[in-house]
């Protein structure tokens, strides 16, 4: 885990009106590492992701991508987004495009890759995820799990530096969750730097190098998964985890 941090947040503050959504959030994501954000709904996980992707502006603090500040008002927003891949909870595939067109849109229009090359690369990625046969299908002909895997391929197609996965299994039934998580496991093997928010605690424990517990917009506790799950220091973390265990999402 040597080398620089791909992503670093320094005392980030974000408010919606009078409501403080993120309060002094510090976070460092080293290269080739996976960081899992856990916490109850409304704890600020999604907002944090949206801030990193500059879909939301922040009120105070700074976010750095590869050492340069992206929250600087002079930063080129489009250039930043080109280096970050995002996968959303609701897939957000483009319904009027085939799977292949969905994936090749950004490489062709943003990165200026030729059509043949973009399609070859897309097919290679699809093939690796067992979706090559679906290349010519429209998204509404695919299952939720397949759509989400296509969304992952779409985010990967531009060769991003960092991948943000925002509760990507929340809209899927338990059977489909497995096939999507398998893909994330593979990506970790390949050394992709990722930040993911999830309610799948078992998965977070397995795949994450660092777990970060958000509560009321504050990073209450962070550390290796064995520590956060096995020996939580904070009372709130213990409460949260015991509720999760009770709901059957994590073996006690």
């Amino acid at each position: 885990m040597s080398g620089t941090d791909v992503l670093r947040l320094e005392s980030v503050r974000k408010t919606f009106g009078s409501q403080v959504v993120l309060r002094d959030v510090d976070l460092a994501v080293p290269e080739h590492s996976v960081t899992a954000l856990i916490g109850a709904s409304g704890s600020g996980k999604s907002t944090l992701m949206r801030c990193v992707n500059l879909l939301e502006g922040i009120d105070d603090g700074a976010i750095f991508l590869d050492g340069s500040e992206i929250t600087d008002p002079r930063a080129d927003v489009d250039a930043v987004r080109r280096r970050i891949g995002v996968v959303f909870q609701s897939y957000n595939l483009f319904p009027h495009m085939t799977v292949l067109e969905n994936i090749t849109l950004a490489p062709r229009r943003v990165h200026g890759v030729g059509r043949a090359e973009a399609e070859a690369r897309a097919l290679e990625l699809l093939d690796r995820l067992g979706l090559a046969a679906k290349a010519k299908e429209y998204p509404d002909r695919l299952s939720g799990g397949q759509q989400q895997r296509v969304a992952i391929v779409r985010a990967l197609a531009t060769g991003p530096r960092l991948l943000l996965l925002d509760e990507i299994t929340a809209a899927l039934d338990p059977v489909l969750v497995g096939e999507v998580l398998m893909v994330v496991r593979d990506l970790k093997e390949q050394g992709m730097t990722m930040v993911l928010s999830t309610h799948e605690m078992g998965f977070a424990r397995e795949v994450a190098d660092r777990v970060c517990f958000l509560d009321g917009g504050v990073v209450l506790e962070q550390g290796p998964p064995e520590q956060v799950f096995g020996d939580p220091q904070e009372e709130r973390t213990r409460q949260f985890l015991s509720r999760v265990v009770a709901s059957g999402r994590l073996q006690g």
Partner: peptide
């Protein structure tokens, strides 16, 4: 709006 958000997060400009 999520469609536009998805497009923008892929790096497409507003016009694209």
């Amino acid at each position: 709006p999520s469609q536009r958000a998805a497009a923008r997060s892929l790096g497409l400009t507003n016009a694209q």
